[in-house]
Design a binder for these strands. Structure first.
Lengths: 352, 352
DNA sequence: CACTAGTATGTGATCGATAACAGAAGGAGT
DNA sequence: ACTCCTTCTGTTATCGATCACATACTAGTG
């Protein structure tokens, strides 16, 4: 057998507060206090502990701490299982924020229909105690969670108790920018392809669309759409284009917009010559489509992180200062899919 | 104050084995044994415990169990932070499998460059003890993980120790199907847009492309590409099309294919009349592109789940039977972006 | 200088489970 | 009837941290 230096085998067992205490010449409780609030210790003691910790590469056993304090450092993130390409950037932002605050984030896909979904949720929650939950998917009856375990639940995009939903303003301004952009190109009658209305983001975009259209004195050519998918966008566009005087379509996300463009193509409309299309989200591929897609660029990481901060704030009542939701960087990116409204020719040809 | 029935306040504190034991009239250790292996108990005892558990709605405190056994029920999933739309379906598959086995899955985005990334990884691992890790992103030196903590690490798509990488066969057969499909359409000289070669999937697809081309007696028009992004596909296509006798491009994923189609469009080639394009992954939008994309459909959930099972198998040496990797459902979906090779006209016009 | 209040540190109990060992019950063999 | 082994169950210690309480040390007051 090869001789292995003792040192190299050392890291197998982690140091405990007792070992740190012995090395520092203090009691284990003093070490514990050092972690809780070092300012309560005499400077000299504090330094001894610090040195001992460094030497032993001490890191606290979170399991033991949890057992005693009953506090858990695990959060639950619910993501849509149905939406195959859920923006992981948003999840990453949330996960980063959670880790920075010392929490672990457990990700669970929530899919299926009502009862099945509820059962699934219940099973997950029984699996382990969570300090809080963050849902990127609208929860049927958020009461369920609240009742089941007494933990704070934040649903992304939903207005918080102070009614200042973080997306509200920004969603509004971007929707207005879209409508203004289309109006500026001469479009008079536009339509909206909406996302599923359980989703706050979908509701906001629809509401803001309606308001912007009315504010700008344009005509609402109708609203269609049911899911977030391209297939739904495809169907919606076919429905909407029954009204041939529509010259622009604003879709609630890029996938819907892609489906809409496909439908327009099949119906013989060219984009943007006959109909302009605008999406939302700025998928990384959207700039490479033919035609490239006019859309709204968002800082998804920031959104995820901001939502997580909302949850963290709910977890720590001592309010470590709201980390400033920020103006949520969001801007309209104009590309090829939106252009001047057709010069009245199509309308006269097909209209009436 | 309103009177609240005692019952409704009950669930605040969960029952412990001691309470179960008292109610069942046995010792706490017997309850513990019931959970470990009820067959070691007398039928009558077992039943008493079972009844008491049901009555108290007992569920074990995993924190306490972990503290004692030092076993942890948390796994780490590393996902690429750079790739904005990492297939969450794969992650979902993995998460489901983990939960089914009683593990929690913590998701962490691994991004940034070498040293920064390493530091980040270290920080995460210090955060809490993990039973194992599953990486969907190629790890620079997987030694790092292995050395840091003695935990099993499985890198998705990488060959396992028995050298039967789960994607190998399947990747191979799909690449062959693609080449055969193109050959059948009359293409003689095709090119490949590869993904980053650190990724097993990218390496496999490239290798299989080369072999299939050579087996089929076709000409390799070249290989380009660096990242997974559409931008990379765009650049690669512009480079490859310097060779004007290429009539088909096989991209390692759909995003690359989208970038390539954009480049071909800008260069004045029409797809598929002048050049055929084939992708890989079957993004949900790919069917709605104009032209719709010929691609390879995969069961991403199954892949994620299968990878997780690989990890779980490594965690439990008592081998609960390999859950059968399955033939990895994977098939070529032919759509509009691939068509007959141009009838020699273009070649003669542009060639030499 | 004794007394008190406040700060800093130490001692033992505790969280809820499993581990290790000991003891009780039940058959089989002589 | 007695021993011995096997099977089942109970008692106590333990994991690594925090909590509750006790005690030692300072400093301020009359």
């Amino acid at each position: 057998m090869t001789q292995t230096p003792a040192e190299s085998r050392q890291p197998v067992r982690a140091a405990t507060i007792y070992e740190v205490a012995r090395l520092a010449g203090v009691s284990h409780q003093t070490v514990s206090r050092y972690m809780a609030d070092r300012s309560k210790l005499k400077a000299a003691t504090s330094e001894k502990v610090e040195r001992a910790m460094a030497e032993l590469k001490y890191s606290p056993n979170l399991t033991a701490r949890s057992l005693r304090t009953k506090a858990t450092y695990r959060l639950l993130a619910l993501v849509p299982g149905a939406s195959p390409y859920f923006p992981s950037r948003m999840l990453n932002g949330a996960a980063d924020a959670a880790h920075a605050a010392g929490y672990q984030l457990d990700v669970v896909a929530l899919e299926g229909t009502g009862p099945e979904r509820t059962a699934r949720l219940r099973r997950i929650l029984d699996g382990g105690p969570f300090a809080g939950a963050l849902s990127f998917v609208p929860i049927p009856n958020s009461d369920l969670l609240q009742a089941q375990e007494r933990i704070p639940v934040v649903v992304a995009g939903e207005y918080d108790d102070k009614m200042r939903g973080q997306g509200r303003m920004s969603d509004g301004s971007a929707a207005q920018a879209i409508v203004a952009h289309l109006a500026g190109l001469g479009h008079r009658r536009i339509a909206h392809i909406a996302g599923p209305q359980e989703w706050p983001a979908a509701r906001n975009r629809l509401a803001m669309y309606r308001q912007a259209v009315s504010d700008a004195g344009l005509e609402d050519g109708g609203v269609a759409g049911a899911e977030w998918s391209s297939a739904s966008g495809y169907r919606a566009a076919r429905t909407l284009m029954g009204d041939s005087s529509i010259t622009a379509i604003f879709a609630a996300n890029d996938q819907l917009a892609i489906g809409a463009m496909r439908a327009l193509h099949e119906l013989g409309f060219s984009v943007p010559a006959d109909v302009s299309v605008v999406g939302w989200d700025d998928h990384p591929e959207s700039a490479f489509l033919v035609p490239s897609l006019t859309t709204v660029q968002m800082d998804l990481e920031a959104q995820g992180s901001s939502t997580m901060h909302q949850l963290l704030a709910a977890l720590t009542p001592d309010a470590p200062a709201p980390p400033e939701p920020g103006p949520t960087a969001m801007r309209l990116v104009v590309r090829e899919s939106s252009g001047p409204a057709p010069s009245g020719l199509r309308q006269t040809r097909l209209g009436s």
